[in-house]
Amino acid sequence: MTAIYLCLTVIFASTVQAVSGFGFNIVGAPLLMLFIAPKQVISLTIFGALILNLMVIHKTRGQGDFYLILPMFAASIVGVLPGVYFLNLVDGAMLKIVVGTIVILMSIALAANFSVQIRRQRLASIIAGGVGGFMGGATSMSGPVVAMFLMNQKQDKVAFRANLVRFFCLNNIVILGTMYFMGVMDVAVLPLISYIVPGVLIGTWLGEKAFHRVSPAVFRQVVIMVLISCGLMSVGPEVVKHFL
Score class of each variant (00 low, 15 high):
residue 67 Y to M: 08
residue 204 T to R: 09
residue 20 S to P: 06
residue 114 F to V: 07
residue 69 I to R: 09
residue 152 N to T: 11
residue 141 M to H: 07
residue 165 V to T: 02
residue 79 G to Q: 11
residue 10 V to N: 04
residue 189 V to Q: 03
residue 161 R to F: 07
residue 76 S to C: 10
residue 100 G to Y: 05
residue 95 L to C: 10
residue 231 G to L: 04
residue 83 G to D: 07
residue 31 L to I: 11
residue 210 A to R: 03
residue 238 E to M: 14
residue 134 F to V: 10
residue 174 V to I: 14
residue 47 F to L: 12
residue 91 D to R: 08
residue 130 G to M: 08
residue 94 M to Y: 15
residue 24 F to C: 11
residue 154 K to Y: 05
residue 113 N to M: 11
residue 188 A to D: 09
residue 4 I to S: 14
residue 71 P to A: 14
residue 241 K to A: 14
residue 160 F to K: 00
residue 120 R to N: 11
residue 160 F to E: 06
residue 102 I to C: 15
residue 126 I to N: 01
residue 128 A to E: 06
residue 236 G to H: 02
residue 31 L to E: 02
residue 8 L to K: 12
residue 99 V to D: 04
residue 96 K to L: 08
residue 54 L to N: 00
residue 185 M to L: 12
residue 81 L to M: 13
residue 41 V to I: 06
residue 181 F to D: 05
residue 155 Q to P: 01
residue 156 D to A: 06
residue 7 C to R: 02
residue 114 F to E: 05
residue 56 V to K: 03
residue 34 L to Q: 15
residue 114 F to D: 00
residue 242 H to T: 10
residue 234 S to L: 15
residue 10 V to I: 15
residue 61 R to I: 10
residue 10 V to D: 07
residue 204 T to Q: 13
residue 190 L to Y: 03
residue 42 I to K: 01
residue 68 L to E: 10
residue 146 V to A: 12
residue 135 M to F: 10
residue 1 M to Q: 12
residue 133 G to P: 12
residue 174 V to N: 09
residue 126 I to M: 14
residue 1 M to R: 13
residue 132 G to C: 13
residue 166 R to N: 13
residue 112 A to I: 07
residue 40 Q to T: 06
residue 44 L to R: 02
residue 8 L to S: 13
residue 157 K to C: 04
residue 65 D to W: 11
residue 1 M to L: 15
residue 141 M to R: 00
residue 159 A to L: 08
residue 234 S to M: 15
residue 55 M to C: 13
residue 205 W to Q: 12
residue 116 V to S: 01
residue 88 N to S: 15
residue 242 H to I: 00
residue 26 I to T: 06
residue 159 A to K: 15
residue 126 I to P: 01
residue 17 Q to K: 08
